[in-house]
C-alpha cells in the first residue's frame, strides 16, 4: 500500500475549518506496519478522509493480509 495515492476529487469539506480537502501524505498503521500514503486531508486541522470504497476495498485487503502475516 506504500507509495499509493488515493487522492480523488471530493465534495466533502472540513466543517470545522470551512476548508476544501487537499492531497497530503499521511502515515497509516496496522499491526506494526506503517504505510505512507496520499489521502485527502484538511489543510488546517489535518482531518483525514477515508472514503467508503477505500475502507472496504484496498484498505480491507491490506488489513487482512497483515493479519495473516
Amino acid at each position: 500500500m506504500s507509495n499509493f495515492s488515493f487522492i480523488a476529487e471530493t465534495d466533502w469539506r472540513c466543517a470545522c475549518c470551512n476548508k476544501n480537502l487537499q492531497a497530503s501524505k499521511v502515515n497509516v498503521e496496522y499491526m506494526g506496519s506503517v504505510f505512507n500514503v496520499e489521502l485527502m486531508v484538511c489543510p488546517d486541522c489535518g482531518f483525514v478522509l477515508i472514503p467508503e470504497d477505500l475502507a472496504l476495498g484496498k484498505m480491507l485487503q491490506v488489513e487482512q493480509l497483515l493479519e495473516d502475516k
Binding site: V28, Y30, A55, L56, L60, E63
Partner: peptide
C-alpha cells in the same frame, strides 16, 4: 445515510 469501518489507524 451510510456507515462503514476500517481497522487501520490514522494519525490523530
Amino acid at each position: 445515510h451510510n456507515a462503514y469501518s476500517h481497522r487501520m489507524s490514522l494519525p490523530g
